[in-house]
């Protein structure tokens, strides 16, 4: 059975990994908001230092972090190019045909680019160092105040947990169905797009049927154990803030203070 990675969690035993997931979630969210307060180069330097230190401490290989850039590469390219070429102001740097690049454009492009990169780095550091289940717990906690506004926080968290739990099961199931249909001469590899799409029918229909069957069985089993979504429940793993979290909070607050200082002083 091939192992599959869920999300992009990088299991390791670093100080960042062992931080309270709620703290990590709130912290990276605050950091992202901070990024939009920065207006000058020193601010970006401080922010970049914060991320660099976090990555170093997390022991996650840099290649894993860089991989996350692939997803936004086109967006990044566009942002940088648009700002660079179409932002007049300042001195002219060079002109090439109808394209002219000004200093203002260059600095804007550099800022926007850094902002995007730092944004992606911080959010991928969160998902790389927090297991999906922990993250779900943290999201539930953050959503809790919204219960007053009738946002079903517990249900959303339960749905996410169930979805995560069943990914490996469904992958295994798909592997089995695929083999069974291959044994009946199905061909999933050759042919054009249309033929390939058609060849997925014998795979997807049984997979959907089994997913529905499992959902039905799970719902029945949960009801048999008196599951009520709105009932108050306790946790097996209680999240507790430790001294380590407070220390990290102090460091993060210092960095955030510095970032704000670069803007206002």
């Amino acid at each position: 059975m091939p192992r599959i990675a869920i999300g992009q969690y990088y299991p390791a035993n670093s100080p960042i990994h062992s931080l309270d997931p709620r703290f990590k979630l709130v912290c990276s969210f605050t950091f992202i908001i901070m990024l939009f307060f920065i207006t000058s180069a020193p601010g970006y330097v401080v922010a970049a230092c914060f991320i660099a230190v976090s990555i170093k401490v997390s022991t996650v290989p840099l290649s894993f972090i860089l991989r996350s850039l692939r997803a936004i590469f086109i967006l990044l390219l566009f942002t940088v190019a648009l700002n660079m070429f179409f932002m007049p102001g300042g001195d002219l740097v060079f002109r090439l045909g109808f394209i002219s690049v000004y200093t203002e454009g260059l600095s804007r492009a550099a800022m926007m680019g850094s902002r995007l990169i730092l944004l992606i780095f911080s959010s991928s550091l969160l998902t790389l160092t927090t297991s999906p289940i922990d993250l779900t717990g943290a999201i539930e906690f953050v959503l809790t105040p919204l219960k007053k506004l009738r946002v079903p926080a517990a249900e959303i968290a339960m749905m996410m947990t169930i979805a995560l739990r069943f990914i490996p099961t469904l992958v295994e199931e798909m592997d089995k169905i695929m083999k069974a249909q291959k044994a009946r001469g199905a061909d999933f590899e050759t042919g054009g797009i249309v033929k390939k799409a058609r060849s997925l029918i014998p795979l997807l229909i049984p997979l959907f049927i089994s997913a529905f069957r499992r959902a039905d069985e799970l719902a029945m089993a949960m009801e048999a154990r008196c599951y009520r979504p709105d009932a108050p429940r306790t946790r097996m793993k209680i999240m507790r803030l430790t001294q380590r979290d407070f220390a990290a909070l102090g460091i993060a607050a210092a960095f955030f203070g510095l970032i704000l200082a670069t803007r206002y002083f």
Partner: peptide, 8 residues
């Protein structure tokens, strides 16, 4: 396979 009806 085991439970072959799952491939219908």
């Amino acid at each position: 396979f085991q439970y072959p009806e799952h491939q219908l």
